[in-house]
């Protein structure tokens, strides 16, 4: 019997599943730059971000998405960084944001 066309479909569950262990590539980023853990999502990095004015780059959001295992989005958005370093100057928790962004950008495999 052919598959019926219902005219609608179900949406995936968008809830975060925290019980799933961290991806090894996320683990690797956190180990290479432990200061990422100090982020408290205050948003100062994003408020001063040069690229954030015209791209979806916001470092604190990338940290949250990294924890959530969304490596592809993190990798893509990190490409927008211009490495100007204003975020790092302003971060009250002393996160080494430039290194963190380089590690995040490397999550996206280079074009073959």
């Amino acid at each position: 019997m052919p598959k019926p066309d219902f005219g609608f479909s179900f949406a995936p569950n968008r809830a975060l599943e925290l019980s799933v262990p961290l991806l090894p590539e996320v683990q690797a980023v956190l180990e290479a730059e432990p200061s990422i853990r100090a982020c408290m999502a205050c948003g100062q990095c994003a408020a001063v971000c040069t690229a954030g004015v015209f791209t979806p780059l916001a470092f604190y959001r990338l940290v949250l998405q990294l924890w959530a295992g969304e490596v592809e989005v993190v990798g893509q958005r990190a490409q927008h960084c211009m490495l100007c370093g204003k975020c790092q100057m302003t971060c009250p928790r002393g996160v080494n944001i430039r290194n963190a962004l380089l590690l995040m950008a490397a999550l996206l495999p280079p074009k073959p």
Binding site: R14, A15, L16, E17
Partner: peptide
């Protein structure tokens, strides 16, 4: 347990 991760704007589940 269920919660909302309000910084991500997504519901969250955890065992």
């Amino acid at each position: 347990v269920k919660a909302e991760d309000t910084l991500q704007g997504r519901p969250l589940h955890l065992q």
